[in-house]
Amino acid sequence: MAISNVLMFGMVDFSGLLDKFGIDWHLLLIQSLNFVLVAFLLYRFGFRSVARVMDERREKIELGLKYADDMKREKAAFESSRAQRAESARREAEGIVKSAKDGAKAILEQGKMELQQQSAGMILNAEKEIARRRKKILGDAKAEIGTLVVEVAKSVLASQMTDRDRNNYAAMAEKMLP
Protein backbone atom coordinates (compact mmCIF):
# COMPACT_ATOMS: atom_id res chain seq x y z
CA MET A 1 0.00 0.00 0.00
CA ALA A 2 2.70 2.43 1.00
CA ILE A 3 4.79 1.80 -2.08
CA SER A 4 1.90 2.16 -4.48
CA ASN A 5 0.93 5.42 -2.82
CA VAL A 6 4.43 6.79 -3.19
CA LEU A 7 4.58 5.78 -6.84
CA MET A 8 1.24 7.42 -7.40
CA PHE A 9 2.49 10.59 -5.76
CA GLY A 10 5.35 10.82 -8.20
CA MET A 11 3.36 10.19 -11.32
CA VAL A 12 0.34 12.39 -10.91
CA ASP A 13 0.05 15.89 -12.27
CA PHE A 14 -1.72 17.54 -9.37
CA SER A 15 -2.22 21.06 -10.68
CA GLY A 16 -4.31 19.73 -13.55
CA LEU A 17 -6.36 17.72 -11.10
CA LEU A 18 -6.96 20.72 -8.88
CA ASP A 19 -8.34 22.68 -11.83
CA LYS A 20 -10.39 19.80 -13.05
CA PHE A 21 -12.15 19.20 -9.75
CA GLY A 22 -12.46 22.90 -8.97
CA ILE A 23 -10.38 22.90 -5.80
CA ASP A 24 -10.48 26.30 -4.13
CA TRP A 25 -9.03 27.05 -0.72
CA HIS A 26 -12.05 29.21 0.07
CA LEU A 27 -14.30 26.24 -0.42
CA LEU A 28 -11.95 24.00 1.54
CA LEU A 29 -12.05 26.45 4.41
CA ILE A 30 -15.84 26.71 4.31
CA GLN A 31 -16.33 22.97 4.23
CA SER A 32 -13.84 22.18 6.95
CA LEU A 33 -15.21 24.88 9.24
CA ASN A 34 -18.68 23.57 8.56
CA PHE A 35 -17.70 20.04 9.46
CA VAL A 36 -15.80 21.02 12.59
CA LEU A 37 -18.71 23.15 13.76
CA VAL A 38 -21.27 20.41 13.15
CA ALA A 39 -19.12 17.77 14.81
CA PHE A 40 -18.56 19.99 17.83
CA LEU A 41 -22.23 20.89 18.17
CA LEU A 42 -23.27 17.28 17.77
CA TYR A 43 -20.89 16.21 20.49
CA ARG A 44 -21.59 19.12 22.81
CA PHE A 45 -25.39 18.96 22.66
CA GLY A 46 -26.03 15.40 21.55
CA PHE A 47 -23.58 12.61 21.97
CA ARG A 48 -21.98 13.71 25.20
CA SER A 49 -25.16 13.36 27.17
CA VAL A 50 -26.10 10.23 25.25
CA ALA A 51 -22.77 8.59 26.03
CA ARG A 52 -23.02 9.63 29.66
CA VAL A 53 -26.53 8.28 29.95
CA MET A 54 -25.49 5.03 28.29
CA ASP A 55 -22.67 4.59 30.77
CA GLU A 56 -24.99 5.47 33.62
CA ARG A 57 -27.56 2.97 32.45
CA ARG A 58 -24.98 0.26 32.08
CA GLU A 59 -23.78 0.93 35.60
CA LYS A 60 -27.33 0.80 36.84
CA ILE A 61 -28.03 -2.44 35.05
CA GLU A 62 -24.84 -3.91 36.42
CA LEU A 63 -25.80 -2.81 39.91
CA GLY A 64 -29.29 -4.20 39.45
CA LEU A 65 -27.97 -7.53 38.24
CA LYS A 66 -25.55 -7.67 41.11
CA TYR A 67 -28.33 -6.83 43.54
CA ALA A 68 -30.55 -9.52 42.07
CA ASP A 69 -27.70 -12.00 42.32
CA ASP A 70 -27.06 -11.08 45.94
CA MET A 71 -30.74 -11.38 46.70
CA LYS A 72 -30.89 -14.77 45.11
CA ARG A 73 -27.88 -15.97 47.03
CA GLU A 74 -29.27 -14.53 50.26
CA LYS A 75 -32.60 -16.18 49.65
CA ALA A 76 -30.93 -19.51 49.00
CA ALA A 77 -28.88 -19.16 52.17
CA PHE A 78 -32.00 -18.23 54.12
CA GLU A 79 -33.90 -21.16 52.70
CA SER A 80 -31.17 -23.61 53.58
CA SER A 81 -30.76 -22.20 57.11
CA ARG A 82 -34.50 -22.33 57.65
CA ALA A 83 -34.57 -25.94 56.54
CA GLN A 84 -31.66 -26.68 58.85
CA ARG A 85 -33.36 -25.00 61.75
CA ALA A 86 -36.60 -26.85 61.09
CA GLU A 87 -34.70 -30.13 60.95
CA SER A 88 -32.84 -29.45 64.17
CA ALA A 89 -36.04 -28.35 65.88
CA ARG A 90 -37.75 -31.55 64.79
CA ARG A 91 -34.85 -33.58 66.09
CA GLU A 92 -34.89 -31.68 69.36
CA ALA A 93 -38.59 -32.24 69.74
CA GLU A 94 -38.15 -35.92 69.11
CA GLY A 95 -35.40 -36.00 71.71
CA ILE A 96 -37.58 -34.22 74.22
CA VAL A 97 -40.49 -36.55 73.65
CA LYS A 98 -38.23 -39.56 73.90
CA SER A 99 -36.56 -38.38 77.07
CA ALA A 100 -39.95 -37.56 78.54
CA LYS A 101 -41.15 -41.03 77.74
CA ASP A 102 -38.01 -42.54 79.22
CA GLY A 103 -38.37 -40.43 82.32
CA ALA A 104 -41.95 -41.44 82.74
CA LYS A 105 -41.06 -45.09 82.34
CA ALA A 106 -38.22 -44.77 84.85
CA ILE A 107 -40.47 -43.06 87.34
CA LEU A 108 -43.05 -45.78 86.91
CA GLU A 109 -40.43 -48.50 87.37
CA GLN A 110 -39.03 -46.80 90.40
CA GLY A 111 -42.44 -46.41 91.94
CA LYS A 112 -43.16 -50.05 91.34
CA MET A 113 -39.83 -51.04 92.82
CA GLU A 114 -40.33 -48.85 95.87
CA LEU A 115 -43.80 -50.17 96.32
CA GLN A 116 -42.56 -53.73 96.11
CA GLN A 117 -39.74 -53.02 98.53
CA GLN A 118 -42.12 -51.31 100.88
CA SER A 119 -44.57 -54.11 100.75
CA ALA A 120 -41.81 -56.64 101.13
CA GLY A 121 -40.51 -54.72 104.17
CA MET A 122 -43.96 -54.50 105.62
CA ILE A 123 -44.50 -58.22 105.16
CA LEU A 124 -41.16 -58.95 106.69
CA ASN A 125 -41.87 -56.65 109.63
CA ALA A 126 -45.24 -58.19 110.05
CA GLU A 127 -43.77 -61.68 110.01
CA LYS A 128 -41.10 -60.63 112.46
CA GLU A 129 -43.70 -59.07 114.69
CA ILE A 130 -45.82 -62.14 114.45
CA ALA A 131 -42.87 -64.37 115.29
CA ARG A 132 -41.82 -62.10 118.14
CA ARG A 133 -45.29 -61.92 119.51
CA ARG A 134 -45.73 -65.67 119.23
CA LYS A 135 -42.44 -66.22 120.93
CA LYS A 136 -43.40 -63.78 123.62
CA ILE A 137 -46.80 -65.34 124.05
CA LEU A 138 -45.22 -68.76 124.06
CA GLY A 139 -42.67 -67.63 126.62
CA ASP A 140 -45.35 -66.04 128.76
CA ALA A 141 -47.50 -69.11 128.48
CA LYS A 142 -44.53 -71.36 129.33
CA ALA A 143 -43.64 -69.28 132.30
CA GLU A 144 -47.22 -69.12 133.49
CA ILE A 145 -47.81 -72.82 132.89
CA GLY A 146 -44.55 -73.67 134.66
CA THR A 147 -45.40 -71.48 137.59
CA LEU A 148 -48.91 -72.96 137.53
CA VAL A 149 -47.51 -76.50 137.56
CA VAL A 150 -45.09 -75.59 140.28
CA GLU A 151 -47.85 -73.88 142.25
CA VAL A 152 -50.09 -76.93 141.83
CA ALA A 153 -47.34 -79.36 142.64
CA LYS A 154 -46.28 -77.18 145.54
CA SER A 155 -49.74 -77.05 146.84
CA VAL A 156 -49.95 -80.87 146.33
CA LEU A 157 -46.57 -81.77 147.55
CA ALA A 158 -46.13 -78.87 149.93
CA SER A 159 -44.91 -80.75 152.83
CA GLN A 160 -43.01 -83.76 151.42
CA MET A 161 -40.77 -82.17 148.95
CA THR A 162 -37.41 -80.68 149.45
CA ASP A 163 -36.14 -77.63 147.68
CA ARG A 164 -34.01 -79.84 145.41
CA ASP A 165 -36.95 -81.93 144.34
CA ARG A 166 -39.02 -78.86 143.68
CA ASN A 167 -36.41 -77.50 141.36
CA ASN A 168 -36.09 -80.90 139.61
CA TYR A 169 -39.80 -81.07 139.04
CA ALA A 170 -39.94 -77.56 137.74
CA ALA A 171 -37.16 -78.39 135.30
CA MET A 172 -38.88 -81.59 134.25
CA ALA A 173 -42.13 -79.81 133.70
CA GLU A 174 -40.43 -77.21 131.64
CA LYS A 175 -38.81 -79.95 129.52
CA MET A 176 -42.03 -81.67 128.94
CA LEU A 177 -43.86 -78.62 127.86
CA PRO A 178 -43.61 -77.98 124.11
Partner: peptide, 24 residues
Protein backbone atom coordinates in the same frame (compact mmCIF):
# COMPACT_ATOMS: atom_id res chain seq x y z
CA UNK B 1 -17.41 38.62 -1.00
CA UNK B 2 -14.47 36.54 -2.11
CA UNK B 3 -16.02 33.27 -1.05
CA UNK B 4 -17.73 31.40 -3.86
CA UNK B 5 -20.74 29.49 -2.67
CA UNK B 6 -21.22 26.37 -4.73
CA UNK B 7 -24.21 24.06 -4.91
CA UNK B 8 -22.25 21.59 -2.84
CA UNK B 9 -21.71 24.11 -0.06
CA UNK B 10 -25.43 24.96 -0.01
CA UNK B 11 -26.26 21.27 0.31
CA UNK B 12 -23.63 20.85 3.00
CA UNK B 13 -25.11 23.69 5.06
CA UNK B 14 -28.66 22.49 4.59
CA UNK B 15 -27.86 18.95 5.68
CA UNK B 16 -25.75 20.21 8.60
CA UNK B 17 -28.71 22.21 9.81
CA UNK B 18 -30.93 19.18 9.40
CA UNK B 19 -28.52 16.97 11.34
CA UNK B 20 -28.34 19.37 14.24
CA UNK B 21 -32.12 19.87 14.33
CA UNK B 22 -32.73 16.12 14.05
CA UNK B 23 -30.41 15.31 16.91
CA UNK B 24 -31.83 18.11 19.00
Amino acid sequence: GQFPITDSVIMSWAISLLIILAVK
